[in-house]
Simulated scan of single mutants.
Amino acid sequence: MEYIARTPRNQLGLFPTALDHMIDKDNSVRAIDIFVDRLDLSQFDLTKTAQTGRPSYNPADLLKLFIYGYMNRMRSSRQLEKITCVEF
């Protein structure tokens, strides 16, 4: 079973601005993204998905969110959810 598909950051949607354009070039999020993308997560059991039920989130995306929360002292999942919601 595949992971939940993510929308590319440079794709235009309902609004004329892409998500990638809303993030500064020197933001720490970009460093986290590059760091996690270079990791080989296939050697861990995290990447094995079940064949039934709802697809899971990509472990790389969850790791990026965890690292971002750790760097910004956010331990609550509710805080992380609030900060990751895109508001236009």
Rank of each mutant, 00 (worst) to 15 (best):
L62S: 04
L46G: 05
S42Q: 13
D20R: 04
K48T: 15
D26I: 03
S77E: 12
L12Q: 09
F66S: 08
L12P: 01
N58K: 15
L19D: 14
N27H: 15
R75E: 15
G69R: 03
S42N: 10
Y70T: 10
L63K: 00
D20S: 14
D40C: 03
R73T: 04
Q11C: 08
M74G: 05
M71T: 11
A18R: 07
V86Y: 12
F66I: 08
R30C: 02
Y57A: 11
R6Q: 07
V29W: 09
L12G: 09
F66H: 07
K25Y: 00
I67E: 07
S28V: 12
D40K: 07
A31E: 15
T84A: 11
V36R: 07
M71N: 02
F15E: 12
P8Y: 11
K64Q: 13
V86T: 12
L14F: 13
D26E: 13
A18H: 05
F66R: 08
L65A: 12
I34E: 11
N58P: 00
R73K: 12
R6F: 03
T84Q: 10
R38H: 12
L19S: 03
F15Y: 14
F44S: 15
D20P: 00
N72T: 14
A31P: 00
T49P: 00
T84K: 08
F35A: 11
V36Q: 06
V29H: 01
Y68M: 02
D61E: 14
Q11G: 02
T52S: 09
L62F: 01
M74T: 04
F66G: 00
T49Q: 11
I23F: 10
P8R: 14
G69K: 04
R38D: 10
F35S: 06
A50P: 09
L19A: 13
S42G: 09
H21S: 15
R73L: 10
Q43A: 12
I32D: 04
T52L: 08
Y57M: 07
N10I: 01
S76D: 14
F35Y: 14
S28K: 11
T49W: 01
I32P: 05
R30W: 15
R30T: 09
L63G: 04
N72G: 00
K82R: 13
L41H: 08
N58R: 13
V29F: 12
M22F: 06
I32G: 03
M22N: 06
L65D: 09
T52G: 00
M71E: 12
R75N: 11
Y70H: 06
L12S: 10
C85P: 00
T49L: 06
Y68I: 00
Q11P: 01
P8C: 05
L46M: 14
S42K: 10
L14I: 09
K48H: 14
K82Y: 07
I67F: 08
K25G: 03
P55Q: 05
R30D: 05
Y68R: 07
S77F: 15
L39W: 01
L41G: 03
I23W: 04
Q11W: 13
N58Q: 14
D33E: 15
L39K: 02
A18Y: 04
D33W: 08
E81C: 09
K48L: 13
T7S: 06
I23A: 01
